[in-house]
């Protein structure tokens, strides 16, 4: 994990060096700003850009180890402070969406495993949404339906739980389609397997078989998708936070990309990469909890 983090930091550091143009100029407001030579030299000295590349790289790694991600060009604030300010909103959005998506997927998987045709239809529809509907398009459709036509919910994310409903639906619906698809297949496999027959002959009811036996098998591949789901939620958050005008990490990332605010982009990317690695590490642990076969080996 430390290796991947180091590699991510190195890749991003050198990727940034590929940017055409003078970074000192970018700090002073881009090529249009016509900064004086003295101001450029001052900016170079301030940001350590006058030193050899290798020295800059070592400084960069050293600062990273101390948790210093540099200063945003556009906001003139420490990147870590900007990230910290916005992290909470995005985490709340992502975690609640994940829970909602898992709940929908679980209900659908349970329902269609019991042979409900309606449930299969609904989960098929969600699968198509998951595979083919862009987040922004789903968000627009939900706004048109629930705000413009019905007037039930606000079209922008106002503070409080009511403003979270549409952003969460936008993120959770496609995710639940993927999860339901994976879970349904493994539940059907589990129900057809000999240990379920054995449980049945011991007198276990269909509810007990589902909750005690089949569900574990459904959880394993779904947990395996966690890292991917994290990425999908973060990508979705960029779009969703922009459309619903909700402050968060995704929207700051987009603004930073538009303004070519390199330190802020790097900071957000590194934090997301760290989050991704935490999720995959936790996934391995969760796998062992759910699947006793992994503990034995």
């Amino acid at each position: 994990m430390a290796f991947v983090l180091w590699a991510v930091a190195t890749v991003t550091f050198f990727a940034i060096r590929l940017i055409p143009g003078d970074p000192a100029e970018a700090i002073l407001g881009g090529p249009g700003s016509q900064a004086s030579a003295a101001a450029l030299a001052q900016a170079r000295a301030d940001y350590g850009l006058d030193q050899p590349l290798f020295v800059q790289y070592l400084h960069y790694l050293g600062r990273m180890l101390r948790g210093d991600l540099g200063t945003s060009y556009a906001l003139k604030q420490p990147v870590l402070a900007v990230v910290g300010e916005n992290l909470g909103g995005t985490l709340l959005l992502a975690v609640v969406s994940l829970i909602v998506a898992a709940a929908i997927a679980l209900a659908l998987a349970a329902w269609s495993a019991q042979g409900g045709r309606v449930a299969s239809g609904v989960s098929w529809l969600l699968e198509v949404i998951a595979a083919a509907v862009p987040h922004f398009w789903l968000a627009i459709s939900l706004i048109l339906l629930f705000s413009t036509t019905l007037g039930w919910l606000p079209p922008v994310s106002v503070p409080g739980p009511i403003g979270l409903v549409l952003p969460i639906l936008t993120l959770a619906l496609p995710l639940s389609g993927f999860l339901a698809q994976v879970m349904r297949e493994s539940i059907l496999d589990a129900i057809a397997s000999p240990f379920v027959l054995a449980a049945r002959t011991r007198g276990e009811g269909s509810g007990g078989v589902f909750w005690r036996h089949a569900l574990r098998h459904a959880a394993i591949p779904a947990i395996g998708l966690a890292g991917w789901a994290f990425g999908s939620l973060i990508s979705g958050a960029v779009v969703v936070e922009t459309i619903f005008a909700r402050p968060g990490l995704g929207r700051s990332l987009l603004t930073a990309v538009q303004q070519r605010d390199v330190p802020l982009v790097l900071g957000v990317v590194l934090v997301v990469a760290l989050g991704y690695m935490l999720v995959t590490t936790l996934t391995d642990l969760a796998d062992r909890l759910v699947d006793p076969r992994l503990r034995a080996s």
């Binding site: 590699a7 973060i234 390199v262 997301v272």
Partner: peptide
Amino acid sequence: EVLFAFPGLLLALLFIVVY
């Protein structure tokens, strides 16, 4: 594995910020 740590749109956004 390193590339996978930039999930989803992130790698695309990183590329766009460079070019």
